[in-house]
């Protein structure tokens, strides 16, 4: 088999007596290359046919800038909402006992399992001016559906499990002895939380925030129904990619895609640095 002979370089380093390395590695690399790497390479190559100036021209169009601002801004707000309420949910699930807790715990993962299009039309039905929730907000002058606020609602939904599922295990493993010691030394419960508990769970909270943010930035299905998709106002960046593709502006679509990837990468890099700094600060 050609695949196994191709990995003789790896073979030398691999002293395991378990067979099948060449075959499984061959399958892995072939599949990875065909399904993921070659297609992604096509994305990276494409914009360069219009040159760097063409790329910059495409991504600095006012409509593109507005869409990128909305996608990243709304994702940031949604991730922040999830950080606050996700922490409350995680705390409730770890520290309190109540009837039906296991079921509540299981439902947290619904946004992972529910198709985004279903979430999109359901949230729109709730927040439309005549919807279950919308009818109470409309008289107050609050419009959620078909505005940027609707985008935040959809992005909050799809990012919901991330903060809960990253903070929960850390809270479970948290040693209550430290809290006891703090309390014995006269700290109030609030002081104990801020000085003892929060520094330990903060890195996990940041991880959950980053995951929710990354997911929300690229989200499409749940947003397009509730957003109203008005250019310059409630049009998200992924939708703009779809629109450019429909106009056969392949280089433009790829340019927006690359701009999104670069911005996400920078954002995650900053969060990573913040996290490293907070870990050192917490001493864990």
């Amino acid at each position: 088999m050609t695949v196994s002979s191709g990995f003789s370089l790896f073979r030398r380093r691999n002293r395991s007596i378990i067979p099948g390395f060449g075959l499984t590695m061959g399958i892995t690399l072939t599949y990875l290359t065909l399904i993921v790497l070659i297609p992604l390479a096509a994305l990276v190559i494409r914009p360069w046919e219009i040159g760097l100036s063409g790329f910059l021209h495409q991504v600095t169009e006012p409509r593109v800038l507005a869409a990128l601002r909305l996608s990243f801004g709304a994702a940031f707000v949604a991730a922040a909402i999830n950080a606050v309420f996700g922490l409350a949910v995680a705390w409730m699930l770890v520290r309190y006992d109540f009837w039906g807790k296991r079921v509540v715990d299981a439902t947290v993962d619904l946004p992972f399992a529910l198709p985004t299009a279903v979430a999109g039309i359901a949230l729109t039905a709730l927040y439309a001016p005549n919807g279950w929730i919308g009818q109470f907000l409309d008289p107050l002058g609050i419009k959620v559906a078909y505005t940027p606020l609707g985008v935040v609602v959809a992005l909050t939904f799809i990012g919901l499990p991330f903060v809960v599922r990253t903070v929960q295990p850390v809270l479970e493993e948290l040693d209550t002895e430290l809290e006891e010691a703090a309390a014995c030394l006269g700290a109030t419960r609030f002081e104990t939380f801020m000085r003892v508990i929060f520094p330990v769970i903060f890195p996990a909270l940041l991880t959950g925030f980053a995951l929710a943010l990354a997911r929300a930035v690229g989200e499409y299905g749940s947003v397009i129904f509730i957003a109203g998709n008005m250019p310059m106002v409630s049009e998200i960046a992924p939708l703009l990619i779809v629109i450019k593709l429909e106009q056969f502006n392949y280089a433009g679509a790829a340019s927006v895609g690359i701009a999104m990837l670069i911005l996400s990468f920078i954002m995650l890099l900053v969060i990573n640095l913040l996290q490293r700094w907070s870990r050192r600060w917490a001493g864990v």
Partner: peptide
């Protein structure tokens, strides 16, 4: 590399195949 598809927008995941196999791909 195996995790890559998780960090890419679904729209971009579709886009890459259009760029590769589409009429102007």
């Amino acid at each position: 590399l195996i995790d890559l598809p998780f960090s890419v927008s679904p729209v971009i995941s579709g886009l890459v195949y259009v760029l590769l196999f589409g009429a102007h791909g």
